[in-house]
Amino acid sequence: MTQKTLRIPNRPTGVIAVVLFVIGFITYWDASHMKMRATYGMSASAASYFVAILFVALAIGHLISAFKPSDIEAENADWMAAGWIGLALAGLIGSIWLGGGFILGSTLLFALTARAFGRKALLVDLCLGAFIGVVVFLIFNKLLTLALPQGPIERLF
């Protein structure tokens, strides 16, 4: 690992260069498969080609700066905490995907995010999250008649 970092002094920038190349290529590929042509003037693919070329140019720019010493020092990151937030969002999405409803999802989102910031009182946070979820649900559903995703808890109201 240390040897590689020696060869490419600015590894994150190198990775981003590759990502940009890939996006540029996907955009080019997508544009080359478009069937609908404008009868007059430019077709929808023109903008795609433009953006694809822009991405390739930016990728080259990143590649060049990847070989220069880095001008920004990436800080230490607490990946556990970021992971908790990821889990919190996954909880919300999972709950709505699997029909658990909005309140359950928000409860999970709230409690797990609080956990990411170092709170250990999970039960209190779950209750608080559920309370917020219920209040929000009642406002949206009853007062504003905007339907939020329903699960077993929502049907009790």
């Binding site: 928000s106 989102l109 995010t113 910031f117 608080l128 917020i132």
Partner: peptide, 16 residues
């Protein structure tokens, strides 16, 4: 912790 938890709930709620 509660502030950010609240922000996330509000942010996703708007989208939903």
């Amino acid at each position: 912790p509660w502030l950010y938890a609240g922000i996330l709930v509000f942010a996703s709620m708007g989208t939903i």
